[in-house]
C-alpha cells in the first residue's frame, strides 16, 4: 500500500465533493454540483446550498467508497473542510464527517479549504514541492500565496473587492452569458480578439493585490456608450477583452511574487484556474522564466474532496494526530493566521 486510505469531504460552498485517497493517489472522486440550483439567482444562495449538501452527502460518500472499492472499516482517517466557507454548508459536511470518524473509530482531520487548494497540485505532480508561489482564484477567493513549506504560508496579496470568479460571474450576467460566468466567458471568448478593447488593469502600484470593481464599471460604461453610438463590437471581442483584463492581472501579480521570492515552482488552484486562456498564459510566462508550472487538471482546481484528503494524508504520514471531538466549523478561517 502506498499510503493511508483517507475519505475527504468538502462542503464549504456550492459543490458537495467526496473522494477516497490512497496516499496521494486518487482512488475515487465524486461531485454533486449545485450550479443549476444557483444559476437562476446568478450566485450562490447559502440556504439553498446547505439544503442540497444534506441531500447529497450520504449517497456521495457511499458512491465514492464503492467506486474506490473500499469498505468504510478499511479507512485510516476521515478528512473534512472545517473552513472558510458558508457556515450552514460547512456544518453539514463537518457534522457528517465527525460522526463517521467517531463511529468507525478513526481520526478526523479538519482541513483549511485554502490549504486544500495549495495541496491539490500534488495529486497530479510528484515534483510539486515548496518553496512555491501559488495563485488561488475562484468565485469566493483570490490570493497570491507564498508556500514556504507545507504548513508555512504567507498570503502576499489578494483581491481588495470582488474575487476573480465573482468578477467573471457579474460580467457574464451583465452580458447575458449565464452562470457560472468563468466558463461562459471562456467559451464565448474563443473567437474573440483579446486586444479589441483595452479595459483597465487596476492597482499597478501594488505588486500582489487586485481589484475588479473598476473593470466592472468600465465594461458597463463602455457597453452602454457603444450601444448608444452604434459602435458595438462583436460580443466575442468583448468577452475576450474582459477575460484578458482579468487574466493579465492574475498572471502579472503571480510572477511579481515569483520574482520577489525567487521560487522556481508555481502552482494554481480554484475554479478560475480551469480557464483555458489563463492556463496558457501562465504556461507561457513560466516557460519564459524557466520555472516549473503545476496547475492540476480542471477537476482538481475546482472544489473537490480529494484536495481535502490530500492535506490529511500528508499530516497522517507525519504522525500528526486527528482533531478533538469538540471541534466546530471555522467559517472565517484565514490562511497563514
Amino acid at each position: 500500500m502506498s499510503g493511508p486510505l483517507i475519505l475527504g469531504i468538502e462542503t464549504s460552498c456550492d459543490e458537495t465533493g467526496v473522494a477516497v485517497l490512497e496516499g496521494m493517489k486518487v482512488r475515487s472522486s465524486v461531485l454533486a454540483s449545485q450550479v443549476d440550483l444557483h444559476a437562476r439567482f446568478g450566485g450562490v444562495v447559502p440556504e439553498v446550498a446547505a439544503r442540497a449538501h444534506v441531500e447529497a452527502i450520504r449517497p456521495l460518500v457511499h458512491q465514492a467508497l464503492t467506486m474506490a472499492g473500499v469498505h468504510p472499516d478499511e479507512l485510516d482517517a476521515v478528512a473534512v473542510t472545517q473552513g472558510p466557507g458558508l457556515v450552514g454548508a460547512l456544518m453539514v459536511g463537518y457534522s457528517f464527517a465527525k460522526a463517521l470518524a467517531y463511529s468507525l473509530g478513526k481520526p478526523l482531520y479538519g482541513i483549511d479549504h485554502m490549504e486544500g487548494h495549495l495541496f491539490a497540485p500534488r495529486l497530479s505532480f510528484a515534483r510539486y514541492e515548496p518553496p512555491a508561489v501559488v495563485v488561488l482564484a475562484s468565485g469566493g477567493h483570490s490570493q497570491i500565496v507564498h508556500v514556504k513549506g507545507w504548513g508555512d504560508y504567507e498570503v502576499l496579496g489578494g483581491t481588495i473587492d470582488d474575487a476573480a470568479g465573482e468578477a467573471f460571474d457579474k460580467l457574464a450576467r451583465f452580458m447575458g452569458l449565464g452562470y457560472p460566468g468563468g466558463p461562459a466567458i471562456d467559451k464565448d471568448a474563443v473567437d474573440g480578439d483579446p486586444e479589441a478593447i483595452s479595459f483597465p488593469r487596476a492597482l499597478r502600484d501594488r505588486p500582489y493585490d487586485f481589484s475588479f470593481s473598476g473593470l466592472k464599471t468600465s465594461v458597463v460604461t463602455y457597453l452602454e456608450k457603444a450601444k448608444k453610438d452604434g459602435t458595438l463590437p462583436p460580443r466575442a471581442d468583448v468577452s475576450a477583452s474582459i477575460q484578458e483584463a482579468i487574466i493579465d492581472v492574475l498572471v502579472a501579480k503571480t510572477f511579481n511574487a515569483v520574482e520577489a521570492t525567487g521560487v522556481e515552482v508555481v502552482g494554481g488552484g480554484g475554479g478560475v484556474l480551469a480557464n483555458s486562456r489563463l492556463r496558457k498564459r501562465l504556461a507561457e510566462e513560466a516557460d519564459a522564466r524557466g520555472v516549473g508550472l503545476f496547475v492540476p487538471e480542471p477537476a482538481l482546481c475546482t472544489d473537490n474532496g480529494a484536495m481535502i484528503a490530500s492535506v490529511a494524508s500528508y499530516r497522517m504520514e507525519r504522525g500528526q494526530p486527528g482533531d478533538p471531538l469538540t471541534g466546530d466549523v471555522l467559517p472565517g478561517l484565514r490562511l497563514g493566521s
Binding site: I57, P72, V92, A99, L100, Y102, S103, L104
Partner: peptide, 13 residues
C-alpha cells in the same frame, strides 16, 4: 442539519 448529518453518518457507519 448538523443533527441529521450526524445521525445519518452514525447510522451508515
Amino acid at each position: 442539519r448538523s443533527g441529521i448529518a450526524t445521525a445519518q453518518a452514525f447510522a451508515a457507519a
